[in-house]
Design a protein around this nucleic acid. Sequence first.
DNA 1: CTTTAGCACTCATAGACTCTGAGTGCTAAA
DNA 2: TTTAGCACTCAGAGTCTATGAGTGCTAAAG
Lengths: 349, 349
Amino acid sequence: MEEEQTHLNSRKAAILRAIVSHYVRSGEPVGSKTIVERFELGVSPATVRNEMAALEDAGLIFQPHTSAGRVPTDIGYRYFVDAWARDVRLPPDDARRIRRFFTEPRWELEEALRETAALLSRVTDHAALVFAPALDRSVVRHVEVVRLAGDRAMMVLVTDTGRVENHVVTIPGHIDDVQLEQVSEILNKLTADVALEKAATTISEGIERFPLELRGAVSTVVSALSDELSQRATERVFLEGASNIVDEHKFADLETVRGVIGALEHRRLVLEMLADALGGDMVSVRIGSENPMEQMQFCSVITAPYGSPGNAIGSLGVVGPTRMDYRRSIGAVHEVAAALGRMLSELGV
Amino acid sequence: MEEEQTHLNSRKAAILRAIVSHYVRSGEPVGSKTIVERFELGVSPATVRNEMAALEDAGLIFQPHTSAGRVPTDIGYRYFVDAWARDVRLPPDDARRIRRFFTEPRWELEEALRETAALLSRVTDHAALVFAPALDRSVVRHVEVVRLAGDRAMMVLVTDTGRVENHVVTIPGHIDDVQLEQVSEILNKLTADVALEKAATTISEGIERFPLELRGAVSTVVSALSDELSQRATERVFLEGASNIVDEHKFADLETVRGVIGALEHRRLVLEMLADALGGDMVSVRIGSENPMEQMQFCSVITAPYGSPGNAIGSLGVVGPTRMDYRRSIGAVHEVAAALGRMLSELGV
DNA sequence: CTTTAGCACTCATAGACTCTGAGTGCTAAA
DNA sequence: TTTAGCACTCAGAGTCTATGAGTGCTAAAG
């Protein structure tokens, strides 16, 4: 993951930094003259040009056409991020905004996460994603199987962290309500304070506690439960601010925009983007072609895990054009992840 | 609602129809020559021109510039829809696609609705919306109050239609688990087979059945329940295919696209679009400026209620550019609404 | 060896201009 | 009432030119 990056002498580095900074703001290729005028390097444009030629050879910048200035390549952005966008502090305004958001009390987890995504989107002006906590370590508080109609029944499970899972199961009609209540009762005794991820196996192992004629129904419930826990991941992604993708002209053509918006509609793809953030414990940045996905070649994805350090329970991030303010975006993602982690730990999640 | 529309003689009507049909397909202003060539009217271009001048005076079409053909105005589209896009049949392919979709069995309501939105979006190539059934007539099957941690508890309610409502409530810590179970038990007896919308009042009226020291907690649950039912409406909207809005060049400028995508992100606005469809029992079409919302001035919104006739339980629809294939979109919305209604009634919703 | 002034060169962009043709409205005849 | 004929309009495409931002290279200066 951590490759040794190209080494640049300090002047080349300063020039690269100037190019990235200025291009991100202006959106136009940066020429040698502009750099000398706007950034204090103490050298002439000619010197800058020589250095720029070297930077171009190194693949960090390129010229859209012969008589234009330089634009950073994905590799150039990568250098910028590695060298200057680690451990940055947010502008005080943004920091305050985030802090204020998290001082308001929030009880409903889903709502809180959705609003967190909205906040992140507003602060960064990018599309924002929040992947709900895995809650693997949460513990079963209650299980219930309720007859709906015909042979359909509803399995409901509540955890100590306030997560409610429900799934429709098919239970033969000859099992009556009294028996179902019996099932619920035994299920509750079996799984009381059992970790969510172990619930299914705990029930399977305790199957002999159920009357013979009910065991079929119980195993249906067990498989419904495992399904639920594995499949529902995609429903636990919150996306806000997708319209930011259409903003201005940060993306070259409409087809790209369409591709990105389309990709964001696919919960699985979005999940993939957020999934690997769970591994590390730092902010992760994927720039343009570093993204495995076809449609994301012109996007940068910034993600971070949240939860207690070294033990991520979820992740969040933003998606924007490669031409973005990395320092600000990284700072915001970092800050919101930390604040969300704190909030959840106070909530006991 | 049903205003008397401008009367047009049959030739004017035929010409308007030709203009709308051709413009929707080609995206380019339609001239008199094109009409004569492509549509069999039996008259010369000059005659068509005279008629077109009249149509323009009537406000049904307009010229983008002097030497261009004509383009329908919102009023022109309105005439077209009223005159020729009522009770249309879908192309057999689309109809088959929709039918096939609804033959697959689906147990999970939310998932089914989300997929219905996706289907509608694919068939029409527009953004599609589905507003989940109100389920007002569904009946309480089970209520449970489960202690989470500290003074927080979870209220869970299951209806016969498989809807699960849950809400975190604050219950003083001095009420122990046994007492909570007692509460659940009495709640269940009170609300068994009571209509969802009457559940809260039923509980309030039966408050004297609860031990004195628990009544505070019960009223907390009651207010949580009412909140839940009224507020959660916005979370019951499913949107799919928003990326279709970015398609091709059907919208004039990017700012418009951004506005529309942004509007679709606001659940409340989307809800408003779908809400008034609940009233009628027909497909409703709002063309361009007929939409009350600022951002929707260049969109058409086609909606329809679903459920048993005269008793809508939800609604669905599509959002696209005013330049859309109304017959096809209206047909698809109509067909999907009908099919979804059938499916839900089979499901007992 | 590094820096920089000078200069020729490139090429995207904008503006001016023309040409073309699609489409019109009007008039007068059928 | 219809339509042939015709003059007129004007957006868009094409061509051409001028402009200037920006370059790389060379050779002198530090």
